[in-house]
């Protein structure tokens, strides 16, 4: 038995060491690294898909918010335009009504004026006729017979009727 405890042999320790270093290299380069690389790539691919999905979702949400904002703005604009149109229509209706009322009043006043002038004319003419008739009647009473006067009266009425 040598002096080294448990018969430790440094040469064999180094051979074991060399063996393990080779084994480590084999396992690392042929197994660990490729498998790890595949797993990392797959993880990255799924992560990318997840990120893409999240980005798409975020974009869709932003777009939705934008559309909702636009929709709200359009609704407000429509309401505003509708109110303006109603207001304009009301104003126009009022104008038309006012105009109609004015025209009606004008027509009525014209008609009244015309009727008054017609009446005045008819009254005037009737006055003249009555005066004429009274004059003729007085003449006939003074200068002709009664029957003649009556005949002449009838003739005169007939003439008037014509």
């Amino acid at each position: 038995m040598t002096g080294v405890p448990l018969n430790l042999d440094w040469q064999q320790i180094l051979l074991h060491l060399m063996n393990f270093v080779i084994l480590f290299a084999i396992l690392y380069f042929l197994l660990y690294k490729p498998v790890r690389g595949f797993m990392d790539k797959r993880k990255a691919a799924y992560q990318e898909m997840d990120d893409q999905a999240n980005q798409n979702k975020q974009e869709a949400e932003e777009l939705k918010a934008q559309y909702e904002q636009q929709l709200a703005a359009a609704d407000a604009e429509i309401a505003e335009k509708k109110a303006a149109a109603i207001h304009a229509a009301e104003a126009r209706a009022k104008g038309i009504e006012q105009k109609a009322q004015d025209e009606a009043a004008d027509i009525i006043s014209k008609a009244k004026r015309q009727a008054e002038s017609e009446r005045d004319r008819i009254v005037g003419e009737a006055g003249d006729t009555i005066t004429e008739m009274a004059k003729e009647a007085a003449e006939k009473a003074l200068f002709g017979t009664t029957s003649d006067a009556f005949d002449s009266f009838l003739n005169m009425v007939e003439d008037e009727a014509k």
Partner: peptide, 27 residues
């Protein structure tokens, strides 16, 4: 050498063959 060292070499050879097969045909 001790038989343990021969075992260690054998294990390394087994691993080498296994890893080569896996690397070439499986991965």
């Amino acid at each position: 050498v001790n038989p343990g060292l021969i075992s260690a070499f054998c294990v390394t050879i087994i691993f080498l063959v296994f890893c080569l097969i896996v690397r070439i045909f499986v991965i």
